[in-house]
C-alpha cells in the first residue's frame, strides 16, 4: 500500500480516505519525535554485554538490534527519556546534553 500524504494540509475534503481511516500501517514511523530530546543516549559498545534490557524497556522502539547485537539508537524516534541508561546493568549507556551532542556532530561533519 502506498499512500502519499505529504501535502495533506492542502487536501480538499474529497481527497481524504472515507471515515478518517488511515489506509496504511505504521505511518508514524515517518514522524520524527527525536526533536523532543534534551538528553541523548550514548553507547559505550566496549561495556555492552547485549543483555537487551534497553531494548525491552524502551517505550519508543528506538533501540536498534541486529543479529543479536545492540547497534545503537534510532535517534529519529528516541525522546531521550533515559530509561535505557538507567536500566543498563553495565553503565554502557550515558545520557549527554542534546545540544552539545548536536554541536559535536556538526563540527565532526564540518
Amino acid at each position: 500500500m502506498t499512500w502519499d500524504y505529504s501535502d495533506m494540509g492542502k487536501w480538499s475534503w474529497k481527497k481524504h480516505p472515507r471515515g478518517a481511516v488511515i489506509p496504511k500501517a505504521g505511518t508514524a514511523h515517518d514522524y520524527k519525535t527525536g526533536g523532543w530530546r534534551s538528553q541523548r543516549p550514548i553507547l559505550d559498545k566496549e561495556k555492552c554485554i547485549n543483555c537487551f534490557f534497553c531494548f525491552i524497556y524502551c517505550p519508543d522502539t528506538a533501540i536498534i538490534v541486529k543479529d543479536e547485537d545492540m547497534k545503537g539508537f534510532d535517534l529519529k524516534h528516541c525522546k531521550g527519556c533515559g530509561i535505557c541508561a538507567h536500566e543498563c546493568p553495565k553503565d554502557a549507556i550515558t545520557m549527554v546534553d542534546e545540544i552539545k551532542a548536536k554541536q559535536q556532530d556538526e563540527s565532526a561533519s564540518a
Partner: peptide
Amino acid sequence: PEYPLLDAKNPVTWGAFDGLYGHYFEF
C-alpha cells in the same frame, strides 16, 4: 467492504485521532 480490518495484507487504522492537524471539517 472498504478498508476491512481483517485484510491481513493491508492493516489499516480505524477511528484515528484528528486532534492536531485539523481535518475534521473536511471529514
